[in-house]
């Protein structure tokens, strides 16, 4: 990846975490710009970062408010939020407000980097859709609507295929229950139906449906399709 040009805005009030992110991201070739509060963050937006890392617990402004403002000014820049454990509602709210993904503090740098890659990749995908998806032995041809595990073709019902298609289009990204329901049912239904289709899909594409490899549950939030390695 030619990452030397990728500019990341880190919005975080804790100096040690900022330092850690600056060092960790720099080693991966990202250019890091920093903001320790919401006001500075909004000023730094002028530098047009390619990705934003936003801590939801800032001193001067509520993280969700800042996210709303950022989205109002730039609706395409990927945002990964840092949140605390147990705050599933806060995470879902951030995702519904347009955040691309989240990591829970304390987090490992590899986890954060994976989320950032998925968010950046997704942005590129949206700009120029890739019709073929591969992850492990799963392949999905979005044009011909063919799903395969290895060489074996998998028969999916239209709803199961739709679910997989949405997951593939956002591979590596967490998708909230509400987002999936809206994409698949126009939000007219209960998350229970979604769980039923996820179970059916897993039974068809997972080697061990009880310990899924591809369709991962983000408990209390939604689902994520494992990104290609």
């Amino acid at each position: 990846m030619n990452a030397s040009a990728v500019k990341v805005l880190v919005i975080e009030d804790e100096p040690p975490i900022r330092k850690l992110l600056r060092m960790g991201l720099s080693t991966q070739g990202y250019e890091v710009i920093e903001a320790s509060n919401g006001r500075t963050a909004l000023e730094q937006l002028a530098q047009q970062p390619a990705l934003i890392i936003l801590d939801l617990g800032l001193p001067d402004i509520q993280g969700h408010e800042l996210l709303r403002t950022i989205r109002a000014r730039n609706d395409s820049v990927p945002v990964v939020v840092l949140s605390s454990r147990g705050d599933e509602a806060g995470k879902v709210q951030a995702l519904d407000l347009g955040a691309d993904d989240y990591v829970t503090k304390p987090f490992g740098m590899d986890e954060l980097l994976a989320r950032m890659r998925a968010a950046l990749r997704h942005q590129l995908q949206v700009q120029g859709e890739r019709p073929l998806f591969h992850s492990g032995d799963l392949s999905v041809d979005l044009v011909r609507r063919i799903v395969k595990i290895g060489a074996r073709e998998i028969k999916l019902s239209p709803k199961e295929y739709d679910l997989l298609r949405v997951l593939v289009q956002h591979a590596g990204k967490v998708l909230t229950h509400r987002f999936l329901l809206k994409e698949l049912w126009n939000e007219l239904t209960d998350a229970q139906y979604l769980r039923v289709y996820v179970r059916q899909l897993r039974q068809k594409i997972e080697a061990d449906p009880e310990r899924p490899h591809f369709v991962l549950t983000e408990t209390g939030i939604g689902y994520r399709l494992r990104a290609p390695d």
Partner: peptide
């Protein structure tokens, strides 16, 4: 609370 598939939660706990 909501309706959940026990095996799904078992799976995520194992992960």
């Amino acid at each position: 609370t909501a309706r959940h598939d026990l095996s799904e939660i078992v799976g995520s706990a194992l992960r």
